[in-house]
Amino acid sequence: MKLAVLTVTENGVKIADRIKGQLKDEVEIFEPPKAEDQKPWLMELVKDVFQKYDAMVFVSAVGIAVRALAPHLKDKTVDPAVVVVDDGGSYSISLVSGHIGGANDLARKVADAVGAMPVITTATDIAGKPAIDLFMKDLGLKTTDIAALKRVSSGILRGESACIFADIGLGRWGDRAKASYSVRPLSQLKKYSKYYDHIVVVVEDKPVETVKKALVLKTRRVFAGVGFKKEITPEKIKQAIRGSLAKEGLHAHNLKGIASIDIKSEEEALFKAAEHFNVGVSLYPAVELDEVAPSRSDFVMDKVGAGGVCEPAAILASKGGALIAPKTVYGKVTVALAEEE
Rank of each mutant, 00 (worst) to 15 (best):
190 K>G: 11
228 F>W: 11
147 A>Y: 14
65 A>Q: 07
17 D>R: 15
38 Q>P: 11
3 L>Q: 05
294 P>S: 04
161 S>E: 08
91 Y>L: 12
175 D>R: 14
157 L>R: 04
327 K>G: 01
165 F>W: 05
251 H>T: 12
203 V>Q: 15
156 I>E: 08
60 S>I: 06
124 T>Y: 02
173 W>I: 04
305 G>Y: 08
287 V>N: 15
332 K>N: 14
190 K>H: 13
263 I>V: 10
222 V>G: 03
80 P>D: 02
136 M>I: 05
330 Y>L: 00
19 I>H: 09
35 A>S: 14
195 Y>Q: 14
135 F>H: 05
157 L>C: 03
170 L>V: 06
15 I>C: 00
42 L>D: 04
28 E>R: 13
337 L>K: 00
292 V>Q: 06
164 I>S: 04
66 V>G: 02
102 G>L: 09
148 A>K: 10
217 L>N: 06
244 S>G: 04
283 L>G: 00
340 E>R: 07
318 S>E: 06
241 I>C: 01
69 L>F: 05
246 A>K: 13
217 L>Y: 11
289 L>N: 02
197 D>R: 09
125 D>S: 05
67 R>G: 02
223 F>S: 02
251 H>A: 11
227 G>L: 03
142 K>T: 15
259 A>K: 03
42 L>M: 11
31 E>C: 13
187 S>C: 10
282 S>A: 12
278 N>P: 12
257 G>L: 04
299 F>P: 01
107 A>Y: 10
156 I>Q: 06
78 V>W: 12
198 H>V: 01
155 G>Q: 07
139 L>M: 03
327 K>Y: 12
81 A>S: 04
140 G>R: 10
249 G>R: 05
126 I>V: 13
117 M>I: 14
216 V>A: 03
286 A>S: 10
324 I>L: 01
41 W>M: 02
61 A>D: 10
270 L>R: 05
331 G>K: 07
207 P>L: 09
174 G>I: 07
197 D>N: 13
156 I>C: 05
238 K>L: 13
151 R>C: 10
